[in-house]
Design a protein around this nucleic acid. Structure first.
Lengths: 140, 140
DNA sequence: CTGGTAATAGGAATCGTTACTAATACCTGA
DNA sequence: TCAGGTATTAGTAACGATTCCTATTACCAG
């Protein structure tokens, strides 16, 4: 799956990577696009998508599958999990016990050779839970 | 999130549920559609989508977010996890240690109130690993 | 500089999903 | 049994996220 050919660091890629690293939650492709546009106004949305894909295949970022169809991107590479607020859609990081033992048991039970996992929890974030409906920008 | 009003079991819903329960891997909406069409030839794809959504909101099935944009559906309700083959896209079940302890620690650490989780592993299934490229119907 | 390759902008095309609307099925009470 | 009201449906148009296409541009090696 991964493709570790040398990858030239173009201006677009550097900018995308920078925005992704500085974002405090995990943005969608369009959010990355909007941010990068402040630096490179003529960048194309297609370029953003293509590079997010390339960076993922090169193991430099991660692509997250979101329950509502949109993908989100993550510059943190160490194994970690996500919590997604069911009210506002925000996605945060959580650091959790390593799951190597679980991986091994899956390999034994299913025959799959495991290369990674994605563990995400759903719940309500403190912003949305604590009184009122604040923080629920894009609630369904 | 869930909606537990009484739900009338129409012919479509019964058929969708039946196909989902008898499927050995987790089908996409379109795969469910193709299967149900053998029984109800005039059923609409929109009906399939609507009912998959309704059944999910009533807690009768689960909707899985797939890494490649498509949703998959799951009639197994007990807590369990998934393995997805990175070669052919197939998704299988795995039964794994309960994660209540992890949920508690996340609640403590992040302040989220957790209502559920989704743990999925990625790897290569035995079909795709064992010799040749067999089983890789829709490899990218 | 020059030629060749990789990356890009811009926009059209694709594909999964949802919204809309008129027609139909289903329930409830008389 | 029937009438009236509500939920569900088929069919299709619309939508939004993502990908594809192509001419142009940036980059690198010689």
């Amino acid at each position: 799956m991964s493709n570790y050919e040398p990858l030239q660091m173009t201006r677009s890629r550097r900018a995308i990577l920078r925005e992704l690293s500085s974002a405090e939650h995990h943005p969608t492709a369009d959010e990355v696009y909007q941010r990068v546009r402040r630096t490179i106004p003529r960048i194309s949305l297609a370029t953003v998508y293509r590079n997010l894909d390339i960076l993922t295949r090169h193991g430099m970022i991660r692509t997250l599958a979101d329950a509502d169809g949109q993908r989100r991107y993550d510059a943190t590479l160490e194994d970690h999990c996500h919590v997604r607020c069911e009210v506002c859609g925000r996605v945060d990081d959580v650091h959790v016990v390593p799951l190597e033992a679980v991986e091994r048991s899956i390999t034994d039970a299913s025959g799959y050779s495991i290369s990674g996992y994605s563990l995400s929890f759903a719940g309500v974030c403190p912003r949305c839970a604590g009184g009122g409906r604040r923080g629920a920008e894009d609630a369904s």
